[in-house]
């Protein structure tokens, strides 16, 4: 995002809308720190500039990555936002099967933002522990070597509001992955929000929850629950596997 210096009257209204505090006033004009700006467009979408001075220029590679990962209006493979349908449609897709768990590490969330360099550090940790990257996730498309978790070197300095590493692991490797991710946290300049997904057993128990309990790994009292109301339509004739 840039500020049209001819239009800006320096009212300062835009400043507080920036999640990463990239906007400052200089000589009574708004100026945006281009290293910090994630191209999320929140300042512009808030529609508070009296002079329409906030301008989103056409972005070139690799800066485009910022907008793709940060602007909530971006649609990637049919889904708004930075992730995928993950467990939201698991009652229909069966993407997370019995015997497996999903792990999502959202770098930069909340509030701090992240570089792709920090994101790569965690991608390499889970790759080393046998995790499988989710194909439909936009971050996965930037991982050039799935065996090591290496990210395209051209984008390592790009800053995004957040980026989600989504992986699946055999349930018996859940604990080692979660512990390795948590152990790597102090190598980062940023924060991450961590979550674990698992399908319930028929008796209502959940294997991931059992493993977290046994390992003494804390989780919040609030969770996200797919309540099983989705189903295939009667018009479906053939089965397709869950691919992008």
């Amino acid at each position: 995002m840039i500020v049209d210096q001819k239009l800006c009257i320096g009212c300062g209204r835009c400043r507080v809308y920036c999640p990463v505090r990239a906007i400052r006033l200089e000589n009574r004009k708004a100026v945006i720190d281009q290293d910090l700006c994630t191209e999320c467009a929140n300042c512009q979408r808030a529609n508070i500039c009296p002079k329409q001075a906030l301008v989103k220029p056409a972005l070139e590679w690799p800066r485009q990555v910022r907008s793709q990962m940060s602007d909530v209006t971006t649609v990637y493979r049919g889904v708004n936002g930075r992730g995928t349908e993950e467990m939201k449609t698991n009652d229909v897709t069966g993407r997370f099967k019995k015997g497996f768990a999903g792990i999502a590490v959202e770098l930069g969330r909340p509030q701090v933002s992240t570089t792709m360099r920090d994101l790569e550090k965690i991608a390499m940790v889970v790759a080393a522990h046998g995790a499988e990257f989710e194909e439909c996730n936009p971050i996965t498309s930037y991982i050039v070597d799935k065996a090591t978790g290496k990210v395209n070197p051209e984008i390592l300095d790009e800053r995004v509001i957040s980026g989600i590493i989504e992986v699946t692991v055999p349930i018996e490797r859940l604990r080692e992955n979660v512990e390795a991710i948590i152990a790597a946290a102090d190598q980062l300049d940023t924060v991450f929000s961590l979550d674990v997904v698992c399908v319930n057993n028929e008796d209502g128990s959940n294997d991931a929850r059992t493993i977290l309990d046994e390992a003494g790994i804390w989780y919040r009292p609030n969770a996200k629950n797919n309540v099983g109301l989705g189903h295939l339509d009667s018009r479906r004739e053939k089965d397709v596997s869950y691919t992008a």
């Binding site: 467990m87 991710i181 961590l194 979550d195 698992c198 399908v199 919040r220 969770a223 996200k224 099983g228």
Partner: peptide
């Protein structure tokens, strides 16, 4: 709520909180 409405949890996502350099959080 599920029990009272006759629904069953199919898949659950647990939040394991925030990690990393939390010094900049409000």
């Amino acid at each position: 709520c599920c029990q009272k409405s006759g629904l069953h949890m199919h898949t659950v996502e647990y939040s394991l909180g925030i990690w990393g350099n939390t010094s900049g959080l409000p």
